[in-house]
Structures are given as C-alpha cells and as structure tokens.
Amino acid sequence: MNKKCTLCPRKCGVDRDEALGVCQVSSTVKVARAALHFWEEPCISGENGSGAVFFSGCPLHCVFCQNEEISHGKVGKEITTEELANIYLHLQKQGANNINLVTGTHYIPEIVESVNHAREQGLSIPIIYNTSGYETVESLKLLEGVVNVYLPDFKYWDEALASQYSHAKDYPDVVKSAIVEMVRQVGEPEFNEEGFIQSGVIVRQLLLPGHTRDSKAILKYLHETFENRIYVSLMSQYTPMPHIAEKYPELNRRVTKREYEAVVGYALDLGIENAFIQDRKVAKESFIPKFGNEIL
C-alpha cells in the first residue's frame, strides 16, 4: 500500500506513519481544541455557537498566522477516529448549530470515517469544512456527500503575494479549482427557518493591510464566476502578531477603516448581494482562541 501523502497541494510524499509531513503532524488525528465557537458568520454561530473542532497542523503556514501554535502542530491531543466522532456527538448535544471542521486537509480520510460513524450514531447537524482554500480537487472529492457547507478562504490573487506570505505560488490557481469543485458538490446556499446555513459555499476574503487591490481582484473573479451562487465574507479582522514586525514590517498594522470601506464599496459596485460584512472591532487578540484546552 502506498503511504506517501498527497492529500494537500504540497504533495510532500511523506509516509506520515513514520515522519511528519509539511503539515507538521503525523497520520494520527491531533485536535487542538473542540468547543462551541461564537465568532463565525451569524448563519454559522448564532447564539448557540458552532461546534468547532480545530485540527493541529496546516499545509499552508502563512507568515501572518494567528494560530501558529496549532498550525505547526505544537499543541493538541492525539485521538482515534471513534473519539473524534464522539466529539461531534457531544457538541451536538451541547446545542451546536453545526460541526465546524477547521483546517482538516491532512486528515480528510479520518474526517470521512468519523463523520460517517457519527451519523450512524445520530449526528444530524450540518458538517462545515473550514479551510484555507489550499485543497486538491482529488482530496475534495473524498468529501462529497460528507460535507454540507464549504467555508474556504481566498487569500491571494497575486502569485507573488502567495509566494511571499505562504510560500505557495500556485495558491491562486489551486483555490479557484477548489471552489469550483465545492460549488459543484453542494450547490447554492440553503438556510433553515432559523437562518442557519444547511448547505452551500461561503468564501472568506481576509483583507491584508496595503492590499485592497488584491482583495478587489478576488471579489471581481468570484462575482463574475459564481454570481450569487455563493456567499462572500469580507473580513477586516487581520491582527498583526508579535513575530511579524521584523521580517514583514508592511504587515505590522491593522487594516484601516478606509481600506475596508473601499473593499466593501467595491463589492457593492460589482453587484454582490450575498455578503457578510465584519465589524472592525473584532480585530483584537481576544478573538483568537486559546488552544490546548477544552478537548472533549
């Protein structure tokens, strides 16, 4: 059996039973936090919260990552797929509106197994796949029929920015193909009577300081390609972490009101109707979850 991992676009080919992949974790599921989460879009969190499961490790490793402890696999608890399924069921029992799987690219086979097992045991709330957008179409196809809602980022339009800040020059092309596949699988957004999303795609766009032009290019592409078959979430929450100042001084500030309003205004001018706009007050460190606790 070929154990060389090719789940993410890095295709590092590591046998993760024997060594760590680019994602910085082994093949054993490692979870950094599992708890009700209240800081997602309103149609995801609501008052009861989203049942968020933060997986350790990440294939992308953005230089401005707010969750570096988790993305580098430094914190977390190793669990079995059965234990993962039980976490979903516990979160459902707590009143979660959905199960929100955060950065699970490198655990896609285990996610499929755990969701199927949990559904056999009575899991009935939607499954959200919360991702950087850096996904292969081949891996996403494994999630068809398992995931109800896709929540990808679209971080960069410019290959140079993708290379500089995520060492992934191919990011723009990869995420375009990924979103096409996501829309193919789950179709247009559908909401229940309470206004919570049950299926569909919400694309998040995090505005970086000084890069309104890049954000506008992404919005133009999304609108021209998908029109109102998706939602977009315009995020102003970028928060510079302490390590960013030395190597990337241009990112060592928050987004200004003028920058964010320029992007929102552009979205309106394009005719984008399905959009979430973020209160700039959320750009605070207090909105970054503390990892290594609340494992169920």
Rank of each mutant, 00 (worst) to 15 (best):
S166E: 05
G95Q: 04
S132C: 10
S233P: 13
K141Y: 03
A19F: 12
T131S: 14
V137F: 09
S124A: 14
L89C: 10
C65W: 05
G51T: 13
V22L: 04
C58W: 00
P42I: 04
N116R: 14
Y238K: 11
R258Q: 14
K4E: 14
N148F: 07
V183Y: 01
N48T: 06
Q92S: 09
I99C: 08
C5N: 08
H117L: 15
T225D: 09
E40S: 01
A35M: 01
R119H: 08
G265H: 01
I111V: 13
I128M: 14
N86A: 13
H223Q: 12
E47S: 11
I277W: 08
E259N: 09
E18F: 09
S71I: 01
S286M: 13
F55K: 07
Y231M: 13
G76R: 00
N2K: 13
G13D: 00
A245E: 14
E193I: 12
R119W: 03
G187W: 02
E259P: 09
N86R: 12
L207W: 06
G57W: 02
S132M: 02
K281I: 12
I70K: 00
K284I: 07
E224Q: 15
G122Y: 08
V175H: 01
I87K: 08
E246T: 14
E138P: 06
F191M: 06
P209L: 06
H72A: 04
K216E: 11
P172K: 02
G210C: 11
D158E: 11
P152R: 08
V31E: 03
I272E: 03
A32P: 02
K176T: 07
S124D: 14
G73V: 05
T239M: 12
D153A: 01
P42L: 04
R33H: 04
I230H: 11
Q185N: 06
Y260V: 08
T136A: 00
A178Y: 03
V137D: 03
